[in-house]
Simulated assay, not measured.
Amino acid sequence: MYSPSSAVLMISDLAPDDQPREKMLARGPRALSDTELLAILLRSGRPGVSALDLARSLLRRANHDLHDLARMELQDLVRTKGIGAAKATQLVAAFELGRRRAGKMPRQRTTLDNSEACFHHLHPLLGDLSHEEFHILCLNRANQLLGTHLVSNGGTTGTVADAKKIFRTALQHGSVTSLVLAHNHPSGQAHPSTADVRLTSKLCRAARSLDLHILDHIIVANHRYYSFADNQLLSEEKGNGT
């Protein structure tokens, strides 16, 4: 016998005013709350729980912070009752598309002439990752961005940056004159480690031999950042561990 309480609640089962898809069609995506947008991605809830209720549960787990939600991996998402592998992969795919869109260069070249501008460019790429990645920003003489490149990724505690790969990648841009190094600290600790300082000094020396300049090394730590240039940590002497 059919039991209403055992049915999976779809968005289409809600009253018209409570249907996020209908609201989007009528008023556009910006009129929707974070909960409503998540509900559209989820499409359905679970027995006795609507897609909107399931979206609210997810947001509560992330303390209503979309950056924290985007940091969740598949195994984290499926711990929410009603989120199976299919829904989890849909969410992970949506967040990854958002990162890639944010990381694409606009048609007009971006000028990165200070640490804050670099951070705002890098944060969509690195701000909510649960593992470390090392990127380089390649700039021309006018500090215009030629390209952003991922050169290595690793675990939650570190990644290895290969100097040969870094400079080989940079020199693919014929007009490159300078680089900004960047990596993230998933722990949220913005201060550089001794290894970070030594690596930066090593790369600065190598860059000079190629007539390139390292303008900065940015550490992205969630919503904060650390700039080697702002803290006068780009000299060779600082890399000796003294």
Rank of each mutant, 00 (worst) to 15 (best):
P124Y: 11
D162P: 04
R100N: 07
M105R: 02
H173R: 00
I136W: 00
G147K: 04
S235G: 14
E133P: 01
P29M: 06
N222L: 03
D18E: 07
E36R: 03
L125Y: 06
A86W: 02
M1D: 13
A161T: 13
H131A: 05
Q232T: 10
P124A: 09
V78S: 06
A86I: 09
L145A: 09
Q90E: 15
L210K: 13
S209A: 11
L91M: 14
L59H: 09
L54H: 14
R100I: 13
L129M: 07
T242M: 10
G239A: 04
E237Q: 13
S50N: 06
H223C: 07
S115P: 05
L97D: 12
S50E: 06
T35A: 04
Q19F: 03
H121I: 10
L145C: 07
Y225L: 00
E133V: 13
R107E: 13
K202A: 12
Y226L: 03
E73I: 11
R56D: 15
D68I: 01
E73K: 12
P192T: 10
V180N: 06
M105F: 08
D53M: 06
F119M: 15
A26F: 02
S193E: 06
S3A: 03
D65K: 01
G82H: 07
Q189A: 15
R79H: 03
F228Y: 02
S12P: 00
T148M: 00
